[in-house]
C-alpha cells in the first residue's frame, strides 16, 4: 500500500515539527568545552595575580580582597569579563556552525524563548553581583555567580537538551557548597565554570555530534 508510506511520512513530519518547535537542538558540546578551557585559563591567570599581590601565603582570597586596594579587584573583574566574552562568543560561534550543518536556522521562535529564559536569571545575577561588589560582599560573589548561572540553565533547559537542565542543577549545588567554604572560592569557580563545562561539553559532543 503506497498510502502507508504517506502515513509514515506524516508521522515523521509531526515528530520533527514537535521537536523543532519545542527545543533548540543546535547547541554544540564544543561550546561547553571551550567555555570550560577559557574559565580554567582565566582562573590560572587570576591565581598568579593573587599570588604576586599577596604577602603572607596563608591569606585567602577573601581576606586579600578585603585588605587590598582596588587594583586587584579591577584586575579580577577584567579577567572574568574576558572569560565571559570568550565563552559567549565561542558558544554562539559553535552553535551557529552546528545549525548551518544541520540546515537549521539559528534565530527561531524557540531559540528566542531559550535566550529570554536564559537571560532573565543571568542578568538578575549579574546585577546582584555588581551590587555585592559595591557593598564589598566579596565572599558571596562566587556562590552568586554559580547559583544564578545554574538557575539560568535550569530555566533554559526547558527549551533545549535536557542535559542543560541537569548541568544547571549541579551548578546550583556547587554554588551552595561554595558559600559554605568561602576560602576555596577560586577552586569552586574552577570546578563550576571550568571542569563541569569541560565534562558537559565532551559528554554532549560524544553523545550528539560524535
Amino acid at each position: 500500500m503506497e498510502n502507508k508510506l504517506n502515513y509514515f511520512e506524516d508521522l515523521k513530519t509531526i515528530k520533527k515539527i514537535m521537536e523543532d518547535s519545542s527545543r533548540f537542538l543546535s547547541l554544540s558540546g564544543l561550546s561547553g568545552l571551550f567555555a570550560g578551557i577559557a574559565a580554567l585559563a582565566g582562573s590560572a591567570v587570576a591565581f598568579f595575580i593573587i599570588r604576586k599581590n599577596k604577602t603572607p601565603v596563608s591569606d585567602n582570597l577573601i581576606s586579600i580582597l578585603n585588605k587590598d586596594g582596588n587594583t586587584l579587584k579591577i584586575q579580577l573583574v577584567i579577567i572574568s569579563l574576558i572569560v565571559l566574552i570568550i565563552a559567549i562568543s565561542t558558544s554562539v560561534y559553535f552553535s551557529y556552525r552546528r545549525s548551518q550543518r544541520q540546515g537549521h536556522k539559528i534565530w527561531t521562535p524557540i531559540s528566542k524563548r531559550l535566550l529570554v529564559s536564559l537571560l532573565i536569571p543571568l542578568i538578575t545575577g549579574g546585577l546582584f553581583i555588581i551590587i555585592l561588589s559595591i557593598e564589598n560582599q566579596w565572599q558571596l560573589i562566587v556562590p552568586a555567580m554559580l547559583i544564578f548561572y545554574g538557575l539560568a540553565l535550569v530555566n533554559a533547559g526547558k527549551f533545549t537538551y535536557s542535559e542543560v537542565f541537569y548541568l544547571g542543577v549541579i551548578e546550583i549545588l556547587t554554588g551552595l557548597i561554595s558559600a559554605i567554604f568561602p576560602e576555596y572560592a577560586l577552586l569552586f569557580w574552577c570546578l563550576g565554570f571550568g571542569l563541569l563545562h569541560i565534562a558537559y561539553g565532551l559528554f554532549m559532543y560524544r553523545k550528539y555530534e560524535g
Binding site: 506524516d10 513530519t13 509531526i14 515539527i17 514537535m18 518547535s21
Partner: peptide, 8 residues
C-alpha cells in the same frame, strides 16, 4: 498536521 503538532 504541522499547525496541530506545534500547538499541541
Amino acid at each position: 498536521l504541522g499547525i496541530m503538532s506545534v500547538l499541541i
